[in-house]
């Protein structure tokens, strides 16, 4: 399945063979056009990020002013971020939240997505509908009763209210994984069933290995979402500084009347770094993962 499409993947989606054979000139023009467009897009997307980086090196009184090239380079801003806030604690909290949440969806969403995609049962459509409905409900709708519930459990001010839901029900992951699982041919699963595998074995020994790239993608979306989540940590750990996450800590460089933009941006860069590293490393399996969906069309 994957190997069959792996070969032609490098070639482009639309460049027709006919054009290629006509003239070399056309081909060069096409190459130049697409690549300059690509570079332009890359620049367009990167410029504001470069702006963040430049600001991170400025003195506080230059940051967010009309002059956007640092007059002096203050590399020590990054050190100051660590002096100013317990960044290591926040980093550990962020990692705890993101890693456990990711583990959570692996445990809870994979079986559910399997049942929704690959088993036939009554109420399946309704169950799927419920998943999509849950996803469509903005978080502001449910926070009041949920906050109340966690208060009564005495768990506000900890990371538990943030992590626990992922071990039970994360609509987005279930939905995404279901879409991936749908693309895996039924024949493989049936073959395993005929060999006497239980549904659990079909799931763990056949489906999970085959859908590993898709699962990697879902895991990464979950990691990145929780990594940048601001609303959740603000709500549940806002008063408990020891449990703050990095995304929340960035806001702490705001004073009563003044925002220290250079430090805010330095902290932003530091927060983005782990996510970028993760993306660069995960890119292959991640993109391959989604590729799977495309194959089936």
């Amino acid at each position: 399945m994957t190997t069959a499409t792996a070969t032609p993947r490098r070639t482009s989606g639309g460049s027709p063979v006919v054009v290629r054979r006509k003239t070399n000139w056309n081909r060069i023009l096409y190459w130049v056009a697409t690549h300059s467009l690509g570079v332009a897009l890359g620049l367009m997307f990167t410029l504001p990020v470069i702006f963040v980086l430049l600001t991170a090196f400025m003195r506080s009184d230059q940051a967010m002013t009309a002059s956007w090239w640092p007059r002096e380079w203050h590399f020590e801003n990054f050190v100051e971020v660590f002096d100013r806030a317990p960044m290591v604690t926040y980093l550990i909290n962020s990692l705890t939240y993101s890693l456990l949440a990711t583990l959570g969806i692996l445990v809870s969403a994979i079986p559910a997505a399997y049942a929704l995609a690959k088993l036939k049962w009554r109420g399946q459509t309704w169950a799927f509908m419920a998943v999509v409905a849950a996803m469509m409900l903005p978080p502001q709708v449910v926070i009041v009763p949920l906050f109340d519930m966690w208060v009564r459990m005495g768990l506000t001010g900890t990371l538990v209210p943030l992590i626990a839901p992922y071990f039970l029900f994360d609509a987005f992951s279930i939905f995404l994984l279901r879409q991936f699982f749908l693309t895996i041919p039924k024949d493989y699963l049936d073959a395993a069933r005929i060999d006497g595998c239980s549904e659990w074995q079909v799931l763990t020994r056949v489906l999970v290995p085959m859908a590993r790239p898709g699962i990697a993608a879902a895991a990464m979306f979950c990691f990145l979402f929780t990594w940048n989540d601001y609303f959740g940590p603000l709500l549940y750990t806002g008063e408990a500084r020891d449990h703050w996450t990095l995304s929340l800590a960035i806001a702490s460089f705001r004073g009563m009347h003044h925002v220290e933009w250079n430090l805010t941006m330095a902290a932003t860069v530091l927060t983005m770094l782990p996510a970028i590293v993760l993306f660069v490393f995960a890119q292959k399996s991640f993109v391959k993962g989604i590729t799977f969906t495309g194959v089936k069309g």
């Binding site: 445990v107 809870s108 969403a109 079986p111 559910a112 399997y114 049942a115 088993l119 049962w121 169950a127 419920a130 998943v131 849950a134 409900l137 709708v141 449910v142 926070i143 009041v144 009763p145 949920l146 109340d148 519930m149 839901p165 071990f167 039970l168 029900f169 994360d170 609509a171 279930i174 239980s198 549904e199 659990w200 799931l203």
Partner: peptide, 23 residues
């Protein structure tokens, strides 16, 4: 089997979606 696979999701759905919605 379905119930087993869906159990965490059903519990989670009721607690994190059903209950808040009713409330």
């Amino acid at each position: 089997v379905v119930l087993g696979f869906m159990a965490p999701a059903i519990v989670g759905f009721l607690v994190f979606f059903g209950y808040p919605l009713v409330a």
